[in-house]
Amino acid sequence: MAWAYTKKAAFYLLVLVIVVVSVFPFYYAILTSFKSGTDLFRITYWPTSISFDNYLSVLNQGSFPRNVLNSIFVSTLVVVLALFLAVTASFALSRVRFRGRGLLLMTILAVSMFPQIAVLAGLFEVIRGLGIYNTPWALIFSYTIFTLPFTVWVLTTFMRDLPIEIEEAAIVDGATPWVIIRRVFMPLMWPALVTTGLLAFIAAWNEFLFALTFTSSNTTRTVPVAIALLSGGSQYEIPWGNIMAASVIVTVPLVALVLIFQRKIVSGLTAGGVKG
């Protein structure tokens, strides 16, 4: 009897540890973001006073609001583009039998797992050649390298699971592949499209290497680069308060989205990965 209680207590202790470790850093960032002045350098575990100084300074000074807009613009557009190309491609990959399909799928997966540094030099040349260096277009262009294969891969696994008889019914009704995609599959795939789009959006939102390399001015940077490069007057004066405020601003919507779409995201993450 005592053993059973010990086991139960140990289990809940483990659960508690998992939750605390997962949540604490974010909690602490929020805590810090509401501190100002010398408060910042007094370690506390609970909120003592609340000050919005850091938020006001981040939002009013410098280009942070502009960076947020850049991130929204780039991530949204690149996801829309990727989804547009991926929906038709994944129909072909999941529903039509043709030679070399397996190889093509493997290649697409390989591209999504690419070390991005391997294409950095070549991409830099292309982006300079196109004259889009230091513009949002450079990022939209380069982000396609990971958003497109990812969306194709996930949508292909989703589409494979749509019942074949519905497609055949549409064929009997005289629907062409394009009509099948547009009028039969797309309406059935809304949840999948939202999930895939959201995951791709998060990936684009978080991207750092390309954003760091292909933009060079404060007004064209995206949020991650802006946060990484936030610095104070001197090398030793890191504005931790501002950094935490900026971090909270860009993370809260993301965390909210992820928690709202929790179930969908888990299924999207595992799609393609694990299948029976």
């Binding site: 850093p25 602490y28 990484a228 935490m244």
Partner: peptide, 24 residues
């Protein structure tokens, strides 16, 4: 609730977590 909690580290951008932990 626990599942939601463990999604938080995943949802936080790498740069932000680097900065958060850098501070911690």
């Amino acid at each position: 609730l626990v599942r939601a909690a463990i999604l938080i580290p995943w949802a936080i951008p790498t740069i932000v977590s680097a900065r958060m932990w850098g501070w911690m």
